[in-house]
Amino acid sequence: MKGTLQQQQARLGVRLISPAVIIIGLLIIYPVFYNLYLSFHSVKLSGESRFVGLSNYAAVIGDAEFWRAFLSTALYVFFTTVGTTLFGLIVALAMNKEFPGQGLVRSLLLLPYIAPVISVVFAWQFFFDPVNGIFMHLMVDKWGLYAERFNLIRSPQYALWVAIIFSIWKNFPFTYLMILSRLQAIDQNLYEAAEIDGCTGIKKFFYITLPEIYFVLGSIVLMRIIWNMNKFEDIYLLTDNVKTLPIYTYFKAFTGALDMGQGSAISIIQFAILISFIILYVKKVLKW
C-alpha cells in the first residue's frame, strides 16, 4: 500500500487538492451542468421534468424579446465599458499630479464604488422622481429648461441610458484605482529621457504612459465586460424597464411564465457568447 515515494507524494497531492475539487465541483461545476440539464427539459413546479431536446433553445432564438435583450446587453456592456475605462483613465491621470488635498480627493472619489448599491439606487430614484424629484424640480420649476416633467428613470426610451450612466458613475473608481496604481509605478526616468528628446505631453502619453498601462487597461476592460454582461442588481434595482440578458433570464425563469427550461437556455447561450469572447480577447488583446 505504501508504494514508492513518488506514489506517496501523489496521494498526498490528491488529498491536499480534494477539498478544493469538491468545493468547486459542488459550487461551480454542479450548477453549470444542472443548468445545462435544465435547458434541455421542460420543468414543472412540482419537480416533474420532461426531456424536450433543443426546443427551449429554438424558442429562445425565435423570440424577438430575446434579441431585444441581446441588443440592450450589447449596448449596455459597450457603453459602460468604454465609459468607465475612459472616465477612470482621465481621473487617474488627473489624480497622478500633485496638488493640495490630494489624499482626501483620492479617497472621496471612491465613494460611489464603496457605497451599497441599494442606498445609491434609492438616492437616484428619489433624485429623478418625475413628480417629487429634485432634478425635475430644478429643470422645470426653477430653471425652466423643460416645459413638462418626464420620467427619466423609468420610461423605456431613457431607462437604458440612465442605467449606463449609473454604472459608469458607480464603477469608474475601480478603474481609476487600478490605473493610478500602475501609473505610480512607471519609471520617471522614461519621462525625463523623453523630455530631453523634446517630447510633448501628448506624445509622452501615447509613447510612454499608454504602453506602460496597456495590460492593466486590457485586464480592466476584460473584467468590466464580464462583470457587466452578468450585471443584475444595479439594473434591476434602478429601473424595471431595462431587460438585459441576466434580467431577461430572471423574468423568464422566475416570474410570470416560470419557464426554468428557457431561462436556463438563455443563460447557457449567454455563457457561450461570453466564453468565446473571452478566448478571443485574451488571445488578441492580452496576447497570453
Binding site: G25, Y34, Y37
Partner: peptide, 16 residues
Amino acid sequence: LLILALSLPLIFANGG
C-alpha cells in the same frame, strides 16, 4: 471525484 460531482444533477434531478 469529478464523476461524483457531475452525477449529482442526475441524482437530484430525479424529481418524479
